[in-house]
Every structure is written in structure tokens, then in C-alpha cells.
Design a protein around this nucleic acid. Structure first.
Lengths: 255, 255
DNA sequence: TTGAAAATTCCGCATTACGGAATTACGATC
DNA sequence: GATCGTAATTCCGTAATGCGGAATTTTCAA
């Protein structure tokens, strides 16, 4: 934020929020709620009406929202809320344990990395994965998602992966191996990255649940050369689980 | 709209709409979608970030919506959509049949008149009822709602009305009479206003359904002195029903 | 009718939004 | 790891426009 924010924009949004409080709002009430001068309110309301976001009911009754306001947030999906809610907990994990943490959501038969604490960690384990796709069966995040999602969802996803021509999804065709992998993950309660020769970076991933669904998966990245998987699990699994639970809880509170 | 709309406000809202198209959007893409100059985009995006509506993912990945956008429309309820959808149909009805038409939604044990074509009708049958409460058992709108809503909802509402001390709800305590009234309405497919001696204005009301629920009720107002109820029904019931069906359909299309 | 209260419009001033040009940051390629 | 090309961001002089107190209009109650 180099320069000052554009005042009329924030004021107009403030007015929209105020209008969301009730079905129809008088100018007087908006004046109370926003502390903006009435001429200013009228000017901005006229603008919002011009844009189709607000409707003037009558001089005395006041103003109300119009259908177009739905366009301002209908693209904001549940997955986004999980990511938002997870942020502070991820920072706390990295602050305490140093290793970077990341969160990914399922989209289009792959995991998309939605946020991470890479820049807050002293260890730069990875390139910037933000917004990149990770394969379901190779990445810790994908494995955690698959292992803990409902059975029918898993069947659907695996069927899609089997038809996929991408090399990273080839393992899907070995159904026995996949079943073994996933049931092992469920038993342990966490998933690990498929090791790549020459690359010491590893992930320890768990699901963030929403009822029976997996809302997202969260991973902690560490160097396999710095500690064994067992060591990582012993140190970090419990705090990660606590964070995942807290994230789920904070979401339920807001729904 | 006396003067010009406030430009930066509409531009910022345009940006928010563009951001709703996908999870994360690059500056370049926003530039294409909105045709705004990039410096302007950055300035407005910074403002939106300052307000908490947008988050900057990274220099290269771009920008994404933040949770706060939900506040811009979470007060816009389904009832508002029905009213918005109904508007053109109500105007068409009044244009063809001249009498004013109004729509009301159920709120707080009463019907609230949400919109009407009073000003477009040559007959001014009523004062401006906009945004006023109408009693459930006396008004045609209230009766239409009660008669066609699901049984358990009706039981709840009637129980509340029975406990009400308002005189207009007193009839609720005569359960037999209420049952007779409502089943008559269901049989006929429309509700009428309870006649008031000396007041010739009448309403002919039908429900606008949403599945098994009543989303709203719509009434046509006419002078009882100009025609009998039978005459009004014969002339207007069919077109009103057609409008109500069209409104329901146009809503389903948008959901 | 009259009067009071609330909504809206007016309008001159000062601020601020504007966007082309310059700069910086990034990541790809050798 | 140096260089280059591209895309994002900041700068900054200018013009436009948002601002809000005062004046006006509308509405409703008595």
C-alpha cells in the first residue's frame, strides 16, 4: 500500500455492508451506521444504484440491496474460507517449529496449493508452489486428501486418475498398491511425500475435515536429510492435528 | 441520478466482479477483463486490500477475493431475489390489465409488501403500502401465503398468531373458521381480501411457489364496486397464475 | 394550512484520482 | 549465475471530481 486508499471506494463498500443489515434502510439509519454526511451518502447511493447494486424503494422507506450484489461474492467458495481460516494457524506452526507449512484444496483432480508460510520460514525447502497443481498420488497433500475423503468421492477421483494420461497419475492403475498406500495412511493418520531420489525435501500432510468431507489438506515441509520421517512425526504430528482441529472448529463457528 | 456516478466506486465493483470469475487472477487478466489501465487497477486493488476484500497472493500469481466480500451480500436473502424476479412480470400484468399488482414476502408473522406497480396503474386503489406489514388472516396476500405453505409451517404460524394480542390476529383463535377459510382458498386456487364495509378495494392473491414452499404472494388490487369477485377471477386469475409460474421458473434458472 | 423533520440538491473549493512514462521485480534461457 | 524480456508496480504533473455545509424540496403530522 504505497499511497492512500481511494476513499469513495471504501465508503461505498461500507454502505453496502450497512445495507446488508436489514432489508430496507433509511438514509437516516445509514447516516447513523456509517457516520458519513448525508450528501455523501446520497451521492454514493446514487452511484450504487447506477451500477445496479442498490435499489431506491421510496423517498421515505429508503434503500435496499439489489440482486447484483450477489456477483460481488458468488465466486468466493467454501475452499477459500478454509484457506483464510487456516492462515493464522499455519503461521503459528511455522513460528514454533520453523519449517514451512502449506495448505491445498482439491480442484480438478489435483491439489492446488492455496497458501503457505514459505517466506516466514528460515528453511527454504521448496520453490514457490503457490497456486500450482500437485498430483494426487505422489504429493503428501494429495495422498492425505484421498485417504480421508468419503469412499464414494475417492472412487470417483481414482476412476478419473486411472483414465488420466499424465505420468504422475499412472500409479492409479495399480489398484492394489493404491489401496495399500491409502489404508496405511489412514492407519497412521498422516501422509508423506513419495520420495524422489536426490531431492531431500519431504512433506508431512494431514486432512482438515468438514464433517465427513475433507475441506483441505495441510502439509509441513522438512528436509529428509535433517531428520527421519519417524522423528518428524514424533515432533510435529500432534501440533498439526491440533491446528487442523482448531481450523475446522473456527469454520463451524462462522457458518 | 442528478450528477455523474462516482467513477472509482463503479470501477472497484467491476474489479470485484472480475475477481469472482476465478480463484486467483493476474493483473494482466484483470486488465483484459475490465479494460482499465494497470496503474488504476493496482491503485484500486490496493484499496480493496486495505478494506480486507481482496488478498494479494504474489506478484506473479495475482489477486484473490478475501472472506470479507461475503459481507457485501450476505444480507441479500432469497426473498429479495423473488421480488427482483417478479418486477417485470408485475409490470406486464398492470400494463395489460390496468389494475395495480403488488408482491409481499412473509416476515415476522406478517406479510411485508415489497414491491408494487401502483404508480404505473391508472387506478390508485390504495395508499402506498410499500414496506408495510399486512395481517396474515385479513389480507389476501397473507391468506394466500398461509393457505399454500407447507402444513407444519402453517401450524407454527397459526400458533404464533393465536398468542398474538393484535386485534387483526384475533380470528386465529377460531380454529374451525380458519381451517374452513384456508381450505376454501386451496380449493379455489386464490385468496381474497376480507371485505371491509365502506372500502371497495379488493385483492386477488396467489402464491409464488418455490418447490413446496411459498416464496412470496402476489396480489392484484381492484375496486369491488367495478366488478364482482367472480368477474375478477374469470378475467385475471389465469394470467396471474401464468406470471407466478414464470417467476418461479426464472428463479430456478438462476439458482 | 402550517410547521417540523428528513431527504435531496447546489456549488465553490481543495483534494485526489488519473494514467503515461519510468522503474522494478521476476523467471526463463543460455 | 548473468542476461534478457516480460509483466507488475511506482512516480508524479495535471485535470478532474469528490466533498460536505448551506439551501432547497418533499413528506407527513397536526
Amino acid at each position: 500500500m504505497a499511497s492512500e486508499p481511494v476513499q469513495p471506494v471504501l465508503r461505498a463498500l461500507q454502505i453496502l455492508e450497512a445495507l446488508n443489515q436489514e432489508t430496507v434502510t433509511t438514509l437516516e439509519k445509514l447516516h447513523e451506521r456509517t457516520a458519513l454526511p448525508k450528501p455523501t451518502l446520497v451521492r454514493l447511493l446514487d452511484t450504487l444504484i447506477d451500477g445496479g447494486y442498490v435499489r431506491r424503494i421510496s423517498r421515505t422507506a429508503g434503500y435496499a440491496l439489489a440482486e447484483r450484489v450477489l456477483r460481488l461474492s458468488n465466486g468466493f467458495r467454501y475452499a477459500d474460507r478454509v484457506v483464510d481460516a487456516a492462515r493464522p494457524f499455519m503461521h503459528a506452526l511455522t513460528a514454533e517449529h520453523k519449517w514451512p507449512v502449506a495448505i491445498a484444496t482439491f480442484e480438478n483432480n489435483a491439489m492446488i496449493v492455496r497458501a503457505g508460510t514459505r517466506h516466514k520460514s528460515p528453511f527454504s525447502t521448496d520453490p514457490n508452489y503457490l497456486n500450482t497443481k500437485l498430483p494426487m498420488l505422489v504429493s503428501a497433500l494429495g495422498r492425505a486428501y484421498l485417504a480421508f475423503c468419503p469412499d464414494d468421492e475417492r472412487e470417483t477421483i481414482l476412476a478419473m486418475l486411472r483414465m488420466s494420461s499424465a505420468r504422475v497419475n499412472a500409479t492409479a492403475r495399480d489398484e492394489k498398491a493404491v489401496a495399500r498406500l491409502l489404508s496405511g495412511i489412514r492407519k497412521n493418520g498422516y501422509a508423506s511425500t513419495a520420495p524422489v531420489p536426490g531431492d531431500p525435501s519431504m512433506g508431512l500432510a494431514i486432512p482438515i475435515m468438514r464433517g465427513a468431507d475433507v475441506a483441505a489438506a495441510m502439509t509441513m515441509r522438512y528436509f529428509g536429510s535433517a531428520m527421519t520421517e519417524e522423528e518428524a512425526v514424533r515432533r510435529y504430528l500432534a501440533p498439526m492435528r491440533a491446528a487442523a482441529l482448531a481450523i475446522s472448529a473456527s469454520l463451524e463457528g462462522r457458518e
